[in-house]
Structures are given as C-alpha cells and as structure tokens.
C-alpha cells in the first residue's frame, strides 16, 4: 500500500458516492448511463470472486464488499426505484460492441487459463471501456450536469493515481502487472479529453458542461 494507491481508492469511492447521492437527492437519474453502471457492477462482480478464495487484508475485503454493494445500489436506483426518470433513448450505446471483443481478448490474453483468472482479466478489460456508454451519452445529448462531470472527474483521477501507484510499485517492489497496467493506461486515455473539457468548462464556468 502506498499513498497513490490509497488516494486512488478513495477517489474511486468518492466518485461512486457522488453518483449515488446525486441520484438519491434529486430523485432522478437523468443524464446517467444505466449501461455504464451495469458494466461497473459486472466488473466488480467478476473481479471480486476471489473474496471466496483468498484473504488479502481487512482493507481489501471491506473495500471489495463496499464497491459491490454501492454498484448494485446504483443499478437498483436507476432501473428500479427511479426508472421513470431514466432517459433510455439517449443510453443507446451498443453493449455487444464492447462485450464481444472484451470476452474474446480475456480468453486470448490472461495469466492462466482458469475460470477465475479469465473472469479477472475480463473485469480488467471491461473496466477500461465501461465508461464509454456514459461518454457516448454526453456526446449525444451535448451536455452534462456539473455533478455528473464531478463524478467523471473523480473516476479519471482514480485511474491517474493508479498509474502513479504502478510507477511507484515498479521502482520500489519491481511489481509489474502487464494486463492491469496496459488496460489501465488505455482507460486513462479515455478521460484525457474529458479532463480538458472539465477544467475549461466546468471549473471556469458554472452549471452544466456543454460541448462545443
């Protein structure tokens, strides 16, 4: 554990809580991609199956359970509790375009050809593209509420901090997880364009982010 890892996990948690609170307080999930949230729930479910096979630390176990619970709570709010506010016409990203290549790649490139390792690899690859339906939705509608942009900012910050964590671990422990690092870098690239818009539009302006 190092400061980058810890800060990254905290940002991840903050992002998820921001989204959950936004939906809960406004009683609305307008502007939120339910598909992205379902993908994140699948990511946590397939990655944290090792809760049943290995014990790493109390921190590790607690965080995994919290991430799982919060991601399912988010999906529940979007598709059940506040489904009448869910804008499904704009959440039209075709999931098969993500799932088919990700499933294929996780069978081709993994650390061991066992169900748990393939599912872990699948979750790593899927996480790297899971935000695409949300970014697609913002591009399609041309705007995002500022609270949604704060959510995306913390998610992107979490990814950037994980890269710092890997640089740190490589130099201090010689640790290098090529699957996590390559897909982590790819994932962070998706946020760079958004970061630029966030700084120039949301932080310097007020209210909604509108695309040029």
């Amino acid at each position: 554990m190092n400061i980058f890892r810890l800060a990254g996990d905290v940002c991840h948690l903050v992002a998820i809580i921001i989204l959950l609170l936004k939906i809960w307080r406004s009683r609305s999930c307008a502007g939120i991609s339910g598909k992205s949230q379902v993908l994140f729930a699948i990511v946590f479910t397939t990655r944290y199956l090792d809760l049943f096979t290995v014990f790493i630390s109390p921190y590790n176990t607690i965080m995994k359970v919290v991430f799982l619970a919060l991601s399912y709570a988010t999906v529940y709010l979007i598709y059940m509790r506040f489904r009448n506010t869910f804008n499904s016409e704009n959440d039209s990203f075709r999931l098969e375009f993500l799932l088919v290549p990700v499933i294929g790649l996780s069978f081709l490139e993994n650390y061991a050809f066992t169900p748990l390792e393939i599912l872990w690899t699948f979750s790593i690859f899927l996480e790297s593209v899971a935000i695409m339906p949300q970014l697609f939705m913002i591009t399609k509608t041309g705007e995002a509420e500022s609270i949604t942009t704060h959510y995306l900012f913390f998610l992107g910050l979490y990814r950037a901090l994980y890269i710092a964590n890997w640089v740190w671990r490589y130099h201090t422990e010689g640790f290098f997880d090529q699957i996590a690092v390559v897909s982590g870098v790819v994932q962070t690239i998706f946020y760079i364009d958004f970061f630029y818009l966030y700084v120039t539009k949301v932080l310097r302006g007020r209210g909604k982010m509108t695309l040029p």
């Binding site: 990655r47 090792d50 290995v54 991430f67 061991a112 748990l116 390792e117 640790f175």
Partner: peptide, 10 residues
C-alpha cells in the same frame, strides 16, 4: 513477478 490468484489491488 505476477502471482496468479493473488490480486492485492482493487
């Protein structure tokens, strides 16, 4: 140095 089955990151 990757250990199969033990992933300490989240």
């Amino acid at each position: 140095c990757h250990r199969v089955g033990v992933k300490d990151e989240l």
